[in-house]
Computed example of a mutant assay.
Amino acid sequence: MKRIGITGQNGFVGSHLYNTLGLKPDEFERIDFERHFFEDSEKLDNFVKHCDVIVHLAAMNRHPDPEVIFNNNIELVKTLIGSLERTESKAHILFSSSSQEEKDNLYGRSKKEGRALFAEWAGKSGGHFTGLIIPNVFGPFGKPNYNSFIATFCHKLTHGETPVIDNDGEVKLIYVGELVQEIIEKIKTAETNNLYEVPHTSENKVSEVLGKLEKYRVLYFENGEIPELTTKFDLNLFNTFRCYFEIKDHYPVKFTQHIDPRGAFVEVIRLGIGGQCSFSTTVPGITRGNHFHTRKIERFAVIKGKALIQLRKIDTHEVLDFYLDGNEPAYVDMPIWYTHNIKNIGEEELYTIFWINEPFNAEDSDTYFLEV
């Protein structure tokens, strides 16, 4: 088992890496890091001594003064190297650099010089070092106006604002989940490589990405329809988009009922893709679920009885409660990385329809059990 620490573990990439490593407790032990360790040499040294691998992600991306970015990022590298030297660590260091290295800006220069400093340390100490040149990263929970243009577009489209394209160029992209798998693979191989260019997984014009997101807004955000997702990029972009609206304000979404003397007809889901549809009956007092997914799209639709659906993002404490009643049929969709459950809180059987975008596969279920 490898003991892994992540500087910047609460950041965009760091939190995804931290949570993904947590899915494999037999392979990895996570050594928790806190930002103030950089100001406390004793705590930083204690952290370093417990790590077989350190993924250095902590950095400043944006600031009105580029000199502040440069000085901050170089100082973080030097501080970590100081601790490695004091503790005589032989840890494997993975450093997240950027395709900005070759551009004429101080952020790119801070990354290039930081990578050189780590390579120098590894050469002197006998430690292992991997320098990762990373393309533009997107994915759920990225900060708008900070992490990527996709985060900015998603936030604006779900908050009544209009995105603006500054430069409609071709952008090389990688989904954060794909990047995490690249990092994990490098952790496993433990090979020294001062410059490894992480391959991008898609290349798109900014306007093409915005066009897809605008379609998702109309079909899904406004009308509840799952759009056609023909590529892996489309699925990743859609899962990114649906993490940006205010979940507690959006759900539950009431169905339109078509009532006549025979009874009622309700359309549960309109699809641009296939998947698996099922239903359950649940006796009073019973709870189903308490698990989360990292890629699946899922809808719970209550058509009879009373239910409490609960969601919680796995690295937070806030629980979102949604009360549904079959007398007013409604649904809640499950965002990725949110553990969720459904409980019968009524006095009669609960009838629920479940739809998920891929048939169940016991060997790759993408289902991780965790109490809400």
Rank of each mutant, 00 (worst) to 15 (best):
L179C: 12
K343F: 10
R312T: 07
E228C: 11
L350H: 06
E348F: 02
I187Q: 08
H200I: 03
L271S: 10
N341L: 02
K103D: 11
D321A: 02
G8R: 02
N136L: 02
F292N: 06
G224H: 07
G108W: 13
E267W: 05
E85S: 14
S125N: 06
E191Y: 10
V13N: 09
Y331L: 05
E101D: 15
I273V: 09
L179E: 07
F255T: 08
A59P: 02
T316P: 12
H317E: 09
N61D: 12
Y18C: 13
L324T: 04
L237P: 01
R299C: 12
L311C: 05
L370K: 14
A119S: 12
I74T: 06
I150Q: 01
E214Q: 14
S202W: 00
F28D: 14
E85L: 10
F149T: 00
G139L: 04
K156A: 14
V164Q: 14
G274Y: 10
L229G: 14
D166G: 15
T152G: 13
N147Y: 04
E228F: 10
P135I: 03
E222V: 08
T281N: 10
H200T: 07
L237V: 07
N61C: 08
N239M: 14
F279I: 01
Y338Q: 01
P144H: 04
K205T: 02
T231M: 01
T152N: 08
K112H: 15
H250E: 12
T240H: 08
K156I: 08
L210G: 00
Y146A: 08
P140V: 02
L235C: 04
F95C: 00
M60V: 09
R312S: 06
A116L: 14
K49Q: 15
V206G: 00
D364V: 05
E214C: 09
V68C: 09
K49N: 07
E191C: 04
I184M: 13
F238N: 05
I342Q: 05
P329E: 08
S96W: 04
N10K: 10
V164P: 03
E246M: 07
E191P: 01
K212D: 13
D249A: 14
F95G: 00
F129A: 03
K254T: 09
